[in-house]
Design a protein around this nucleic acid. Structure first.
Length: 801
DNA sequence: TATTTCTGAGTTTTT
DNA sequence: CTCAGAAATA
């Protein structure tokens, strides 16, 4: 093949075909400008936190289009999350009047899905293949174990799932694996079984989407060549997070394997990433891809974006200083044109409760005195369990908050049930979906019947759907009726608009009726209604069918590539497109209190976001860095990068808190301050005591020695009766005083285990009692309001007979 | 089949 | 402690 850019590595100077004062280029700094206007050669852009990475990426695309160096169809831009892809698209269409159609901008999985739909035959998949999410995959794996009669204690389903996903991330099929021990041998066998089962059912998991698409390109030369010629410009976001397979997939589009050596075909691959923000090694991300990329694509020197537009000087200085403790780095120093700002504030507190309370007081201060809006305040923590104490304190203080993470819309049980019915309309052989709803709502098909059905299907080598008639007895009759019902639903939905299809299924399946009779059913019905709305807006806003549309093959390729359906213009049905949407875009995490809410999330979830004020909580050895990461130097370095990510989220104010004691796994644990605190530049850090020191200093607090014992001076006023009593009197080194069995308060005796009444929270059960006299407090599990600690001296608790 | 009791594990997570 | 999933029981 002719290679128009064979001398790519020479990095010729930029030769823009438009003047340098082109509106697109306005306001770019020299490094950004260099990246945006780079000639079409492979390049690595090292984009520091807050350095305008997304801007560079989108402006680059806009520049290529505006200068006629590329057409929309000739660009492929890939991200990790739908959010990032959407943002890119949004910013791009704000820059250029542009037809988004036909542009390949999306997530790795989204783009691979597109390829597989277009070439499902070549990829060996049925046209109606469905996508398994992580839950579905685990279910499918459990079925494999059951069929093999392997006890789940012998091979843990989760472990097998990890094994299979890991193998796929490395691009390995069962036959690529060799066993050293019996355990692994068995897992490989089960991996093989799992693959066969998925193939039989016409389903693919997330890893399979990537791996199939990779193999499709690898094994079908004409197809590969076609896409290589089409996508002259490849842009990869968050390159440090790519796994082996994702990098291998990109290489398929950017060159060929010649005798085991990668030879680039001259496409302009722009990899954008930051090795200092690589925090996903645990799920297969391989920072090493960056150095491989430099070597395999002959990159002379990376373009470094080191000008930070986000944070004040002290914060950047702290980030730079901390990350400097890592040995494995490409090397980068963030700088800012902003002033120094306030130094970082480090606070030590006696317990996680006091930590939460201190944070709340500070939030109040930020909101009232400094006018920081609630949604510009973020509370970060290393692990999800830590949110509890913070949430409790926020709730009691009446401050609106929003917690990231948790169940997402398309992952809710009722929504998954509805989707399973819809999937069965598309692909009746999807046994995962079949099993999910064969007896939901209950229709007299018990475990016994299902057992028989699976046996019959196994013997006949067919799907559960097709084996339904083979089961006798009452259960068999119910099965036949169920299958008939599915068939009727399918017939009824033919040619109908998506909305009607879903509404029909919700009614005909009996889901709505079933939830109508349930206690908590109202909310579930609401969610099902929301599913209809989601489908409606999907059809009108997103459109459908576009997914599978590919540009016509060029002449040479068209002659040799088999004429797969979608490639010749056939489009996906609205239902199929919507199901894909549901599988690949699980939807927003539950949006809670909307706009004016303090944001709570793990440090991982905070990546890519920024806030005026950030609290990093729980900075203790064992927690952050986490115990489990300390066994290897790499682990510790990743924790440090995580800390780096956390620090660089803050624009103006950064607080770092740690507690001497913390409730963990039901018992109080004692922690020493995180080593990361010692790795900060002391000139940018202010060690605070709570209130008292601050009050004495008349504002932002006085400096104290690192680790100085903090004497909290909580007043009784204005904190509400739900606030847990302070542990001020407890010396740091001694265990907390043991709980007395009973406490006398407001004349009545409150005991562990008894039921009590509270004027605001109603009835609850006393779970525990701690402390004595004025400090006595009780933990009460209120039916409607959850578990709370109440100071008995203040709370009005009355025993209930 | 539905509810309750028990057991065990407990970093980080998108697709 | 707290939640999820399995086993046990009505």
């Amino acid at each position: 093949m002719t290679d128009p850019f064979a001398d790519a590595a020479a990095q010729r100077p930029a030769a823009p075909t438009l003047p340098a004062d082109h509106p697109l280029l306005r306001g770019l700094n020299p490094e950004q400008l260099a990246a945006v206007t780079l000639p079409p050669v492979p390049a690595l852009v090292l984009a520091g936190a807050g350095s305008g990475k997304t801007r560079v990426l989108t402006t680059r695309i806009a520049w290529l289009l505006a200068t006629g160096q590329a057409s929309p169809g000739g660009i492929l831009a890939v991200t990790f999350t739908n959010k990032a892809a959407k943002e890119m698209l949004a910013r791009l269409s704000a820059m250029l009047p542009l037809n988004v159609r036909g542009m390949w901008i999306g997530t790795f999985h989204g783009l691979c899905h597109r390829l597989l739909r277009a070439h499902h035959q070549s990829a060996g998949l049925p046209a109606t293949f469905q996508i398994l999410d992580t839950q579905d995959q685990l279910g499918a794996i459990k079925r494999v174990l059951k069929e093999r009669r392997i006890d789940e204690d012998r091979v843990k389903p989760k472990e097998l799932q990890w094994f299979i996903a890991g193998a796929k991330e490395d691009g390995l099929r069962p036959h690529d694996l060799s066993a050293r021990d019996e355990d692994t041998r068995l897992k490989i066998e089960l991996y093989r079984d799992y693959e066969a089962q998925c193939q039989r059912e016409g389903v693919v998991d997330f890893g399979e989407l990537m791996l199939r698409a990779y193999e499709l390109l690898r094994d079908h030369e004409p197809l590969r060549v076609h896409y290589q010629r089409r996508f002259r410009h490849l842009l990869i976001d968050e390159f440090q997070d790519t796994n082996r397979l994702q990098y291998a997939w990109i290489k398929q589009l950017a060159g060929d394997d010649v005798g085991g050596r990668f030879v680039p075909c001259g496409n302009a691959v722009m990899a954008v990433g930051d090795d200092d923000q690589s925090i996903y090694a645990f799920r297969g991300a391989r920072v090493g891809n960056m150095s491989d990329f430099v070597r395999e694509f002959g990159i002379a020197a990376p373009i470094k974006l080191e000008e930070n537009y986000r944070s004040v000087g002290h914060i950047l200085h702290a980030a730079n200083h901390l990350i400097d403790h890592n040995r494995q780095r490409l090397g980068k120093q963030l700088r800012t044109a902003q002033g120094q700002g306030d130094p970082l504030r480090v606070v030590e507190l006696p317990s996680d409760f006091e930590e939460a309370q201190w944070v709340i007081d500070e939030i109040r201060h930020l909101m009232r005195e400094d006018g920081v809006p609630a949604h510009e305040i973020a509370l970060l923590y290393r692990s999800n369990a830590q949110s509890r104490a913070l949430e409790g304190a926020l709730f009691n203080a009446g401050i609106p908050y929003r917690v990231y993470g948790g169940l997402r819309f398309f992952e809710r049980a009722e929504v998954k049930h509805a989707l399973a019915y819809l999937r069965l309309l598309e692909n009746p052989h999807d046994d995962t979906s079949f099993l999910r709803v064969v007896n939901f709502p209950p229709r007299g098909i018990g475990a016994r019947t299902i057992e028989q059905l699976q046996q019959a299907a196994r013997e006949a080598g067919c799907s559960l759907h097709d084996a339904a008639t083979a089961v006798g007895g009452k259960g068999g009759a119910h099965l036949v009726a169920f299958v008939a019902k599915l068939d009727v639903m399918r017939e009824r939905s033919a040619g109908r608009p998506l909305r009607e299809i879903i509404e029909g299924v919700l009614a005909d399946s009996g889901l709505i009726d079933h939830y109508r009779g349930e206690r908590e059913g109202a909310e579930r019905i609401e969610n099902l209604q929301e599913l209809v709305n989601a489908a409606e807006s999907f059809v009108t806003q997103e459109g459908f069918g576009r997914e599978a549309v590919a540009l016509p093959l060029d002449e040479t390729a068209a002659a040799t590539v088999d004429a797969d359906a979608a490639e010749t213009g056939e489009t996906l049905s609205p239902l199929a497109a919507f199901l894909t949407h549901a599988a690949l875009e699980a939807g927003e995490h539950q949006a809670q209190a909307g706009q004016a809410a303090v944001q709570l999330m793990t440090v991982h979830a905070a990546k890519g976001l920024e806030f005026d004020a950030v609290f990093i909580t729980g900075l203790e050895e064992g927690l952050f860095p986490h115990d489990n990461s300390l066994s290897s130097p790499d682990g510790l370095e990743e924790e440090r990068r995580l800390m780096y990510v956390a620090i660089t989220r803050a624009r103006r104010r950064l607080y770092l808190t740690h507690a001497q004691t913390r409730m963990l796994h039901g018992q109080t644990r004692y922690h020493i301050p995180s080593r990361f605190l010692d790795e900060l530049p002391q000139e940018s850090v202010q060690w605070l005591s709570p209130r008292r020191a601050r009050a004495a200093a008349g504002g932002w607090g006085a400096a104290a020695a690192p680790g100085a014992l903090v004497q909290p001076a909580w007043g009784r006023s204005g904190l509400g009766d739900e606030r847990p009593a302070g542990l001020a009197g407890i010396p740091a080194a001694a265990p907390p005083s043991s709980s007395p069995p009973a406490v006398s308060a407001s004349g009545a005796e409150i005991r562990k285990g008894m039921t009590v009444f509270h004027t605001k929270f109603g009835e609850g059960r006393v779970l525990a009692i701690e402390g004595q006299g004025a400090d006595a407090r009780a933990q009460v599990d209120f039916r409607r309001h959850g578990t709370k600690w109440l100071a008995l001296a203040v709370a009005k608790l009355t025993p209930v007979a």
